[in-house]
Amino acid sequence: MKLNEKYFPYVLLLPLLLYILLFFFNPFFNALKLAFFDENNKFTLIYFRELLRDPRFFSAIKYTLMFAVTIVPLQLITAFLIALFINRNFKGSKTLLFICSIPLAISDLAAGLIFLSIFTEHGFLNSFFYFLGLIKKPVYFLSYENIPLLFTSILIAEHWRATAIVLIILIAGLQMIEKDYIDAANVFGANFFKRIFYIIIPLLKPSIQSALIIRTLFAFQMFAVVIALAGDMIPVLSGETYFWYYIYRNSHIASCYAVVIIILSLLLTAIYLKFLTYKEPVYENI
């Protein structure tokens, strides 16, 4: 009877543990196996050597990192500003919060297609510029001839889609900050910007950190939005994984890409945790 009670939680967790075993550990180790072992189960680096010979590999790393380091900070700033605005609790702030959370429901593929209707040469942006009299002929935003423009288009689409989640995390964090702190800062004469930099941001650090980690990890998995807008013109790691498996039917190289994604993800998470871990700040001179 007593024994039963003690092991009961584990019994409840059994389906979950089984699931983790089958659908996380199993593929994880299989990926390593596919990347590092050949058909005869012998350790090999030939797949990685092949990977390194592929010029698209390095551009994939380059573009993936470029996306991560541009989108994530941009999202953080946008979300923070909107969160501050919504947190003023005016009439209609709830509505705005709902509006802003709509992209949360939209997949990266759908977001890509939505922005396709804006950026394509027959698209709305070109029409808009034409009406403003800025252009006579359509601009080719999504062409391999102008990669920076293409990159920016994808950036805008992904920024639009994935800012919502950062916003929700930040607002949840903001709501947990006791109003007393801000009132106190007010009483002691801190102005708006001082309140933000000395009170809100330090107290919001845990939320900022989790938003940052979640978003960065997902930025490494950017895939459908890139394919929808750029096809294979801009290689990214997840896209290459897809192509290697789907078109070239080479699960070894595809696994190598997947392994690279996880290594980069772990590396960046570790860096974030190292530099952003929330410690009680020591203020010596303000």
Binding site: F23, F24, N26, P27, F28, N30, A31, K33, L34, I213, I214, L217, F220, Q221, L237, S238, T241, Y242, Y245, S251, A254, S255, Y257, A258, V259, I261, I262, S265, T269
Partner: peptide, 10 residues
Amino acid sequence: MLPIPLLAVP
């Protein structure tokens, strides 16, 4: 946090 490609391919 595990990337989907890492799960799906194997």
